[in-house]
Amino acid sequence: MKRIVLLSLAGLFFAGSVFAQDDLLADLKSEDSAKVKENITIATFKSTRIINMHSVEMTGEGNLQFMIIHHFGAIWDNNEGATNFGRLFGLNAGFANTYMSFDYTPIRWMNLGVAFAGNSTLEGTAKFKILRQQSGVHNYPISVAWVSTANFYTAKSSESPNDLYWNRFSYLHQLLIARKFSNAFSLQLTPSMVHRNIVAYGIENAHNVYSIGIGGRMKLKEKTALTFEYTRQLNMYEDIIDKTGEVVSYSPNLFSIGYDWDTGGHIFQFFLTNSAYASNLAQLSVNPVKDNFGQWSLGFNLNRSYSVKHKVKTQ
């Protein structure tokens, strides 16, 4: 009998210790349920562009985004001397390449856009989110997206000899692989391919132009960040015969450095880059050689999102 009492006392003690909850909250915190089921990494980049290039970010579901990209003239012309001040580092030079786009995200993982891409070209873009960096139920260390752009040249003087309309098309495909390493630092790797339906004859000329790029964002304060981009073109930049029969060379290096400012509704991105073109297709295939730093140009991206469709998750 003694043993029974002892055993049952031990049993009580054991049961008691299992269910003793001195601090209910501490118990909750130690449980898995204290963590959100799907902890999806947000704001790997603040905008759908790092600077020139697409970022892995996408316009939010049900949102329409309007974006303007501006590339101004050369910041400093060595032959112009003091008149450079009148040109205000290219801002007042009477030259700018403009890109205007509307894009909409009908479903979470797909974004469709149209753009006036500068130099009489129109663009259509489709972006797909393949993987979202997250922890919780699933653990993915990176975000992956795919973006394809079709560019249509509308001006009268086409490169095409018989002016076949399909010769006016060129395409860009990019794989975007990004990771947010910390709250302040994100990196993205971007392999790209440009396909042009028509190219001039020449040994070095090719339909497909490949490049690989890296871009990053370093948060400075709550709503500001520094960004950078470097893209290296891998083929078709030396001794190319252009449509007039001239031999030209392009710059295989595309550098940009930028400053992001999130005002809540708008995202401003100011940047300095060595390409004056507004469209990624031109930047990644026919970027002119710059002899000096003065030929770089300033620019900005400005975007604004409008909520069109409610996800209606709330009551």
């Binding site: 939010g60 409610h310 996800k311 209606v312 998750k313």
Partner: peptide
């Protein structure tokens, strides 16, 4: 979760 992804 919000109706608007940007607000979230």
């Amino acid at each position: 979760h919000f109706n608007n992804a940007l607000l979230e």
